[in-house]
Design a protein around this nucleic acid. Structure first.
Length: 134
DNA sequence: TGCCCGATTGTCT
DNA sequence: GACAATCGGGCAT
């Protein structure tokens, strides 16, 4: 645990937003009890509402390019370090509800974009969904 | 105090 | 498919 990643060791259900590559932010959800360093990186989302606002934040010609990466979706959502440690159940930044996706529709593959533990099957997405990151 | 590199992205070839 | 952009954290001196 360091000062930078301390929120990942904090209360679950909170946002963990960190700055990387000198120009991008990554949005994670803390997923383990306090004291355990665990979080899930949101690598991509399917834009449904507020697409006009997202496009203003991140002008792109193809909507498929709007939120199809961890850095991209933070730009489109306007997320930065100010949102670090926000409560994802009761703040301005929420993760709500869920589509009724059955486990059989969810694919698990090896992780991408990293060197450490790249062989772990910890990358999850809805099979056939065109909004998945690459 | 110095130095390397990062759950990336966009651009150019 | 290779590479530059860009900067603060984290580890080595």
């Amino acid at each position: 645990m360091t000062a930078r990643n301390s929120t990942m060791f904090g209360e679950p259900g909170h946002a963990y937003v960190y700055f990387t590559y000198g120009m991008y932010h990554c949005f994670n959800a803390v997923t383990a009890p306090q004291g355990v360093g665990e979080a899930v990186l949101i690598r991509a989302v399917e834009p449904i509402e507020g697409i006009d606002l997202m496009t203003r934040n991140r002008p792109v010609e193809n909507p498929r390019n709007l939120t199809s990466g961890p850095g991209k979706l933070c730009i489109a959502f306007g997320l930065d370090k100010r949102h670090n440690a926000l409560d994802l159940t009761s703040s301005e930044l929420l993760i709500v509800g869920a589509e009724n996706v059955s486990p059989s529709e969810i694919a698990a593959t090896t992780r991408i974009g990293i060197r450490t533990a790249a062989d772990k099957p910890w990358r999850f997405y809805i099979k056939g969904n065109p909004w998945v990151s690459k």
